[in-house]
Design a protein around this nucleic acid. Structure first.
Lengths: 335, 335
DNA sequence: TTGAAAGCGCTAACAC
DNA sequence: GTGTTAGCGCTTTCAA
């Protein structure tokens, strides 16, 4: 088994308290002795037993990352994974580890990693988590950061994408192409992101007085399938649009399928802009004009916020909004 | 803070030893008292403090999942994530948690989660890990399961895809379409999967006496970019193939780009089969014929194996090979 | 069937 | 500066 502080202490004929002080950069150890301790520790390949340390410090140096396993990110649209990677990369710098939870529990007190005191804080990802669950966590006092989610009546630390701004850019770009019948397809309005993207769409349309031409469909998920269905409904409806702003790239891909099924072609018969900038956006035909989300940066910010929060639990909740970027390709009609 | 065994003991005027026995289904407690303990525990929302338990049992109920952060799975080809999800889902059933490590350390003794006794076992994913690193872990005695990797001189518990069988199916399918100049593009031959897929390709070609027509390019990664470059080289080379078996779907997408750049069209000028069955395979044009990998099942098997291994550390290493499935779409020329 | 006591490895308060 | 002591919350002997 691995070496303990006692092994080091015995070897140097000192107390393990001194070993602990030396190794943790605490005052009250002569430089000479401290160096000796460090040397022996290295020799023995010493690393503190986390269980023992946690037991006394009540700190685990672990952050829980919670996401619903049935969220699309885990399949066709790996949305939260670059974030997760970025989070881990940042947390490692601060000596923290990440523990995963995809169980989709509806209650904090059912979150095993919390009950068992396994984590110092939580990052909750995605809008698809049970509202009461999120609220109860945020009120529990455990340092918590939300990604892509927001509570109505509870202040929380949250990292958001500038969904409204991105949607505004996307829609305005379509308008600049001369389109008037610009429709929107998106996710459930219970999600902050869906609401904001819809708001951006509305603002753009109303900005040029197209209140009458507004037309949008909100489906229960934002997948290829729902995008296809929604687009089909629009194309076969009474006022088929000439352009569509899709709330994410998966739906945009679905829209492409619908267009193709209808015997139409992109971008001539229909212009299309997505949201996300998934890696494949550049590799489908026609390549997809979309709004880039800075996933890695969002992950990094979430990690930093949770660390700050652990250091100072009393700090006021902060809402961080990360901007977006319009990535112009072919599906919008640009050449 | 959360309740402890002492809280329960005090409330019932018994010792915390009895509480522990009652809650852990150990013999030596009357049914009556056990039930009382359980009731009080529920009332108080008790959950054992993992640090305390770990300290005495030397078990953490945590499995480390190790992967290199720069592996493609984390970006365009979310290969290992469905696996990770499946692993978590399975481990939860056995009261285990998953801790992530993407640091890409080159040495076990540098793996913090191991040094600090944070994990009971390790799942190492991907062929891209440092060989010495993997070997040293497998020899360290810590229960370990490899996914998509294999050691030459060290026996290990490993879960593999039937890469050779899948490649055989893919290549034979192209041959059945009447193609003779069937080329292969794949990853580095240091990877087990690349070697096996290449072997399957060779076996298929040699099986119909096409040793002379064999032509393959192995790139340092299996991405859209390398697939495009390799295909470009083949198409502009002395013997342009009429069909290509790509070692994964990302490379196949790259191949499509090269074909398009060359002014050719799929599947008429070139037939194509990939490997993976990523979600988008069905949504690109033409839809991609490919070999399906059962990622969720692989994850589940890895999780089960690591649990068995923890229960019986002496059990002999097992190599598990999960079969594949040919998914026929349009890129191969089928209609 | 139950309790008392020891101890896992570490940190922190208090002596000296 | 350094050692002694206690204790974090739990499990596990050993007694009774």
């Amino acid at each position: 088994m691995s070496a303990t502080t006692n092994d080091i202490a015995r070897k140097l004929n000192i107390s393990n308290a001194t070993v602990s002080r030396a190794l943790n950069d605490r005052p009250g150890v002569s430089n000479e002795l401290r160096q000796k301790v460090i040397n022996v520790a290295n020799e023995l390949g010493f690393a503190p037993n986390m269980a023992a340390r946690s037991l006394v410090t009540a700190r685990t140096q672990t952050i829980g990352f919670v996401i619903r396993s049935f969220d699309q990110p885990f399949s066709s649209d790996p949305f939260y994974f670059p974030m997760l990677t970025a989070i881990e990369l940042e947390l490692v710098l601060h000596d923290y580890h990440v523990m995963l939870d995809t169980s989709g529990s509806d209650n904090v007190s059912h979150l095993r990693m919390v009950k068992q005191n396994r984590v110092d804080g939580l990052i909750l990802a995605g809008p698809n988590l049970n509202l009461q669950f999120v609220t109860s966590i945020c009120n529990s006092g455990l340092p918590t950061v939300l990604i892509d989610n927001k509570l109505k009546h509870t202040k929380a630390n949250t990292i958001l994408t500038d969904d409204k701004g991105g949607a505004l850019d996307a829609t305005q770009h379509l308008l600049q192409h001369g389109h008037r019948a610009v429709a929107h397809i998106g996710g459930p309005l219970e999600w902050v992101s869906s609401r904001q993207r819809y708001a951006g769409y509305c603002e753009a349309m109303q900005g040029v007085g197209l209140n009458q031409q507004m037309q949008s469909i909100h489906t229960e998920a934002t997948t290829i399938a729902t995008g296809e269905a929604a687009t089909m409904a629009l194309l076969t409806g009474p006022n088929p649009p000439t352009a569509i702003f899709a709330a994410n790239d998966a739906m945009a891909v679905g829209a492409m399928r619908a267009v193709s099924t209808q015997g139409l072609s992109l971008p001539n018969d229909l212009a299309l802009v997505g949201f996300d900038n998934i890696d494949l956006a550049d590799h489908i035909t026609p390549s997809l004009t979309t709004i880039r989300i800075f996933k890695e940066q969002i992950g990094q910010l979430a990690a930093r916020r949770i660390i700050d929060l652990i250091a100072d639990t009393t700090s006021a909740p902060v809402e961080t909004i990360v901007s977006t970027e319009l990535v112009i390709r072919r599906s919008c009609g640009c050449s």
